[in-house]
Every structure is written in C-alpha cells, then in structure tokens.
Amino acid sequence: MNITEEAVNGVTVLRTEGRIDSGNAAEFEGHLVKAVGESSRLVVDMAKLSYISSAGLRSLLIAAKKARPSGGRIALSAMAPHIREVFDLSGFSSLFEIHGDAGAAVAALGGA
C-alpha cells in the first residue's frame, strides 16, 4: 500500500495505491484520521487501488464517523469495478459519495 496526500482546490486528496488489507488498515486509518482532522473535505482516490479488505472498509467507516460531528465530508473516487462491487455488496456504497474520478469528487465537495 502506498498513500500520497495532496491538496486540490482546498480539498485534501488521498491517493491510495496497491492493497489495503488487515495488515496495513491501521496505517490507512491513520492517514484518514489525520486528513479528516486537518480538513473538512476529503477525497479518497482509489484509481490505483487493487484490493481493499473489510478492515479497510472499517477504516473508512471510522473516518466517516470522525468527520460527521464537524460536518466534514468524505468522497471516494475512481473505484475499479471489483472494488466497487465490494462497496456495493457490503452496502457501503450508500454510506459514501462515490465519483468517477478525483476531479469530479473534488468538484462535488465544493472545491474551488
């Protein structure tokens, strides 16, 4: 797993790469929590993500719960079909905004 962070038009974009499984979900969670703490608008770009386990979903859930009290928003973007399927199957698709690419996600979050 490799995660890079950048700010695009006032929106924090976390670009994930590789696999997120129970072995590195805690790290993923650390990035997410830190980003949520710093910015109220977060896009998790999954264009290069090859796999996400239920532990990774849990990390996203934790971040969403942390963001909720302060009105923060988390959007996901550029999911590969099999990842999208994981989200659909688990019902998590209904918990997050999901966009086709990071630009759309940033725009949806009101990025200037």
Binding site: L57, L61, L89, S90, G91, F92, S94, L95
Partner: peptide
C-alpha cells in the same frame, strides 16, 4: 438474488 442491506453495526436504523 442480491438483496439490499448494509453490513451490520455500520449504521443503525438501516
């Protein structure tokens, strides 16, 4: 058949 339903414990009142 796929049935809509969220993973349990993620969100109440689903």
């Amino acid at each position: 058949e796929r049935v809509p339903g969220m993973a349990l414990a993620a969100m109440p009142d689903m």
